[in-house]
Design a protein around this nucleic acid. Structure first.
Ligand code: SF4
Ligand code: SF4
Lengths: 161, 161
DNA sequence: CCTATTTTAGACAAAAGAGTCTGAAATCTG
DNA sequence: CAGATTTCAGACTCTTTTGTCTAAAATAGG
């Protein structure tokens, strides 16, 4: 579905949003906490800064920061900046010029899924994801849980959802 | 979303379903009509026969045929046989062991899309897709339209959908 | 001004996906 | 049986994605 680059970008953006207290968050910090290759993440985040979703600053005390309030950055923006918006417009069978009087056999069903995906991606903001990430037992990566690291945790419970 | 292999496999399966009159359809015929590399399609269809979704027969008059009635083969089966079922079970952020008391920040929204996708894939049969493919101006690939080739067409209209 | 830190830019390597090709095995036709 | 056709199996190449590494530019702080 989403490329590795895109997944890393989303995770990092959530991390940055949750660390709003820090002016600029160094990429090295994000990479090590989220267990992502530093150099690879660097390239991904460059895409986000080039897309004006993030600002970057060099030198000591440098790093990356959101260019807009986290309430104004959506999942759609992030995916669009890294993987492109094809996933929201493209066809199941990947045919060019689709949906315009030349439907493939799965069209009507596929567009239903696709539009729901689009609505959700447009609605989900970094802010709301970061808040979720702050809840107990909600994780950002395989190992990294905000509840236990960022907000040195209270109760190491197993909440089910 | 879907790999090229998977897309080719689905297109070919629809083609075979629509050609139910032919006992075995040679892969060369499918490949040339659908403009897919013959050798590549051969490997994809081998996956479908190994998954028992198709039967194959060698020699002159050989080819591939559906192993079951086209009403009993779903999009889910095809995708599962080629790309695997990960797309129906996996997470947006691709984390292992997900959805079990360890949700990522997008979980509740993502599962909604995912389950709708699953329902649709399970419901969509080769039969219904092949029937759609038989309708005018519904195409299977960029160039191949059933209405104009298989059922040498009546009215070359632009229907919109 | 000097050094340490950090992003930027781009080369490079490894792995996975997509596509090509060859030879062998099975099967039909004559 | 001989020859043509077709799937099967696997090697091989090309491209894209993923990941690693190095050097340069910017900046803070002493
Ligand atoms: S007809 Fe619809 S579902 Fe099919 S390939 Fe085009 S846009 Fe996608
Ligand atoms: S928590 Fe849900 S959406 Fe997030 S990675 Fe896991 S299954 Fe996917």
């Amino acid at each position: 579905m989403l490329s590795k680059s895109c997944i890393y970008g989303i995770q990092a953006a959530i991390y940055v949003a949750a660390n709003a207290s820090q002016e600029f968050v160094p990429i090295s910090q994000i990479a090590s906490e989220l267990k992502i290759s530093f150099h690879f993440l660097t390239k991904v985040l460059q895409q986000l800064t080039q897309a004006r979703l993030m600002n970057s600053y060099r030198g000591p005390k440098g790093g990356v920061a959101l260019a807009k309030p986290s309430t104004e950055v959506t999942l759609y923006d992030l995916i669009g900046a890294i993987d492109g918006t094809a996933i929201f417009t493209e066809c199941m069978l990947g045919l060019p010029g689709c949906g315009i009087a030349e439907p493939c056999p799965a069209h009507e069903h596929w567009t239903k899924v696709r539009s729901e995906l689009t609505v959700i991606a447009r609605r989900l903001t970094l802010d709301s994801m970061a808040k979720k990430a702050g809840e107990l037992n909600v994780r950002l990566t395989e190992e990294f849980r905000y509840a236990q690291t960022m907000f040195p945790a209270i109760r190491p419970l197993n909440g089910n959802h």
